[in-house]
């Protein structure tokens, strides 16, 4: 589904990302781990054509992302709070994303009804704009918005950060459900090794912009990762 070939990103003389070849097949749940500055967000931003690659190309379902925009209809993401529109209420935000993705209010409502537990009564029906919600609740809204419109690729940067324990557990269930669907490719990055090993079939470790490990998740994976990061 996604292929990155010879992709590098440099700022001046420092190279922050250098990936020779990475292929993510359709339907895979893909985890990206690494320390701060490893290049996780840079990689995701390249997939979304938010930054320009210094060399190389990213293809999403055969579409080269920096030359065509045809990947947008089937790709959704939540990277950070710049994916939220602060002056809208959560509902208005969901409907807005829905309209951009060709979903009417009823479609969006039907989808939202699956996330009542996840929202924990703190997102919908609030007389608050998104900018006034807590960081955790903003994140919940952003994550769910990325599910609107049946996307085939979902990119979530650090989805577990800032969430309370209950919500983290629910989010793991949600991501597992998504991954079970063979049509949806989920890309998740995290600092939390336990979470990633639980939800991802495959884990790639980035260190200083380069891939240092690429593992199929098994029972030993967590141990292996812990040894690596204990360094």
């Amino acid at each position: 589904m996604i292929t990155a070939k010879n992709i590098t990103k440099s700022y001046g003389k420092t190279t922050v990302l250098n990936i020779e070849n990475l292929e993510i097949p359709k339907g895979q749940s893909f985890g990206l781990v690494g320390n701060n500055g490893a290049g996780k967000t840079t990689f995701f931003s390249l997939l979304l054509d938010l930054i320009e690659p210094t060399t190389g190309q990213v293809h999403n379902n055969g579409v080269q992302v920096d030359t065509s925009e045809d990947w947008k209809p089937f790709t959704a993401a939540f990277i950070d709070e710049t994916f939220l529109i602060g002056y809208l209420t959560a509902e208005e935000y969901f409907y807005f994303i829905g309209e951009l993705r060709g979903q009417n209010k009823a479609d969006v409502n039907a989808l939202l009804s699956n996330f009542t537990d996840f929202f924990h009564g703190e997102i919908l029906g609030q007389s608050k704009y998104l900018r006034d919600l807590s960081k955790g609740n903003q994140k919940k809204a952003g994550i769910v918005a990325s599910f609107i419109g049946n996307p085939e690729v979902i990119i979530l940067d650090e989805p577990f950060a800032n969430l309370d324990p209950t919500t983290q557990i629910r989010l793991k269930e949600i991501i597992k459900d998504l991954a079970a669907n063979q049509n949806v490719t989920v890309l998740v990055s995290s600092h939390d090794l336990i979470h990633v090993t639980e939800v991802c079939e495959r884990i790639v470790v980035l260190n200083k912009g380069e891939i240092v490990k690429d593992i199929e998740t098994s029972t030993e994976t967590l141990k292996e990762l812990e040894v690596f990061f204990a360094g």
Binding site: L48, E69, K72, D80, F83
Partner: peptide, 12 residues
Amino acid sequence: SSYYPLLMSQNI
């Protein structure tokens, strides 16, 4: 500007 990356990654 505060949500420009969102707009740029949507089908707009």
